[in-house]
Nucleic acid binder design. Structure first.
Lengths: 379, 379
DNA sequence: TTGAAAGCGCTAACAA
DNA sequence: TTGTTAGCGCTTTCAA
């Protein structure tokens, strides 16, 4: 039962989305495009004003129990659900966070995202997600504008620091009135950061190899442009130096985080640093490449070579041999990020004495397995 | 320079968010909470009406070049960006898709999500993301309502079919007026689905083992409640039967997708099915567990035991030995899902002869590596 | 080519 | 306790 009169339909009532009247006075009923019930429909059916319905929706106390009950029943009956878009516009508040990530196909970023989603759910925030195709975006500005135009209450920038891909911070941040929090980037003033202590993790790993009596400890690093890779390399280097070992260029080769690059890096190392008796690898995937290579050569691990990875992916326990690694809780990273951002939002609203930004640094944990000896466990 | 007069502030102009006047006539300036520029500010500054600005924003042709240029300059100057929330409300169109996922900490779901984000970006859709804590939600209804209230134009339900966690489809789908598309679930009427051919993938893997001359081909299955696990198991079972092998219960053990469970399953198998000379494992992680176990036992692969995995995670190439596996392109899965959903949305708007739902099935690809012999490559 | 008026669905402020 | 009015920031008629 749908009528259509070309160009002669005129709205007669601002609401009640099923009634229309044609210009010549003929009343026509048009079925609503989408039968979305509005607050007006509820009000009409209950014989009250939209305000009263709104009060019920928002659990206000200034509604008589009778009315409340009646309206609630009608809401139920009509299966009415308030339009969140309209609420956002009216309340000037969206209950949405924006999240920028990259490299979701890798295990790290997706674990972090998982921590973000669960904590956001817990705190009642929805999530608007953007994934960058590369780690550095050529158009940060329009991304920020997109989030702002969608009225997000806060932004989590979950992009690792690579080269100068965070340099926009200096120019763009001052003009940004939306709270924003960064993951896994280097210390900066006036910026809220949550990160993992890559440096200490790397130091602990290297120290373990030293303590195990190894004298020629190599490093397979992540890409030199990555801040996290730099930190891990520095941890390795400093631990060696402080124990009186000299650190030479041939003791370190860079990979690109992939197993293939790890394998290639190991091949290079075994040529250029043949005394090597241990290697600290900047992530577990690359360490897997090392293990494949040593298996092919028939090297015994840990006797001929000790290996330590970084990240603590679940699979590392089932490598052959099982891999000692520096575990970082990336899920927790995301979870804490949301908590902190929520605090920032609240602080921002009660405009008094804005708390200074903090830098939260999570400590990773060394997991001992076969690739460094016979004493599995955690330090 | 912020003044506050308790309860005496009254708005005098509907817009221009910095000017207010107190009831006693005293003019007071209040700094805007957030200095969001509105279309009104642009219009005022340009000396035109808001509509004209709106026309420029929407690239309408009925604006004189002069006016357009002037307004564009002012937009630039004021750094104005339209409020997407207000646009959504007014246009009754959000350009947003809702995505439901689960198990983001696993590599599969996050690869799919990555495919979704990139295609959505390409097609101009934003993404509202929800991750379920478990694979079956106790409250699908309110999740759908949440998406609807946020006016998403379509929904991607990227949750694997486990037990009867999609049974709500029958009761809830008829009342849902938002296009929705499902990933990786079994064939159903009136439902748009994109999935991978797990059955054929498993058949191909099993057939390869048969072709290699293996006579005792076991299976480590995924959890029996998972549809995908059932399909892979059926493919294994059917391939064997059709080649004249009998399929006995002791030839198959279930795991829970984790490496640990894979290792345990392999232990069980080697006890209860000692003739076993090959095993098809339902995912690569579990296969990794098998490889660790065989390494510990000193079994030679592929001579003593051939192993095939499923998924084709990047690491599988660097297992020891490298793992033959059934590769499924989960990124593509997500990407196609978005494409299809976008089509559904367009079809839905031009309300004529709604296309019937289709079921798109992607074919996986067998990748040959050391764990099944000496001939690496792809089939 | 432009502007006025009404409306998207809701809430806040006020009056009754 | 309830209703009225005016907004949130934008778009869509329609009239000028």
């Amino acid at each position: 039962m749908t009528f259509k009169l070309k160009n002669t339909i005129m709205s007669v009532s601002g609401h009640g989305n099923a009634h229309k009247i044609s210009q010549n006075g003929l009343v026509v009923f048009i079925m609503p495009e989408k039968n979305r019930i509005t607050i007006y429909d509820v009000a009409k059916k209950a014989g009250v004003s939209r305000q009263t319905v709104s009060r019920v929706l928002n659990n206000r106390q200034d509604v008589s129990e009778d009315t409340r009950k009646r309206i609630q029943d009608i809401i139920e009956e009509l299966n009415y659900h308030p339009n969140a878009i309209a609420q956002s516009l009216s309340r000037q508040k969206s209950c949405l966070f924006g999240v920028v990530t990259a490299g979701l196909k890798y295990i790290g970023p997706s674990r972090t995202l998982s921590g973000i989603t669960s904590k956001a759910e817990e705190l009642g925030y929805g999530l608007l997600l953007k994934e960058l195709a590369q780690f550095s975006s050529n158009d940060v500005q329009s991304l920020l504008h997109w989030f702002q135009s969608h009225q997000v209450e806060g932004i989590i920038w979950a992009i690792p620091e690579v080269c100068d891909n965070h340099n926009w911070l200096d120019s763009l941040l001052p003009g940004l009135d939306t709270p924003i929090l960064f993951l896994s980037i280097s210390q900066r003033d006036k910026v809220q950061i949550v990160s993992v202590d890559n440096y200490q993790g790397a130091r602990a790993a290297t120290q373990l190899l030293i303590d195990q009596g190894k004298k020629h400890i190599a490093h397979i690093a992540g890409p030199g442009e990555w801040w996290e890779a730099q930190q891990r390399r520095a941890g390795w280097s400093d631990a060696l130096s402080e124990e009186g070992f000299s650190v030479e260029v041939e003791m370190c080769v860079e990979g690109n985080w992939s197993s293939r690059s790890g394998k290639a890096a190991y091949t290079d190392l075994s040529e250029q640093y043949s005394q090597m008796d241990a290697v600290f690898v900047a992530n577990d995937q690359m360490a897997l490449g090392v293990l494949q290579s040593t298996a092919e050569q028939g090297l015994r691990i840990p006797d001929d070579l000790m290996v330590i990875g970084f990240d603590g992916i679940p699979e590392s326990e089932f490598f052959s041999p099982s891999l000692t690694t520096v575990y970082q809780d990336q899920n927790m990273l995301g979870s804490i990020a949301v908590e902190e951002l929520a605090k920032m939002v609240e602080n921002d609203q009660s405009k008094e004495g804005n708390e200074p930004p903090t830098h939260i640094i999570l400590q990773p944990e060394l997991i001992l397995r076969q690739s460094t000896g016979e004493y599995p466990g955690r330090i």
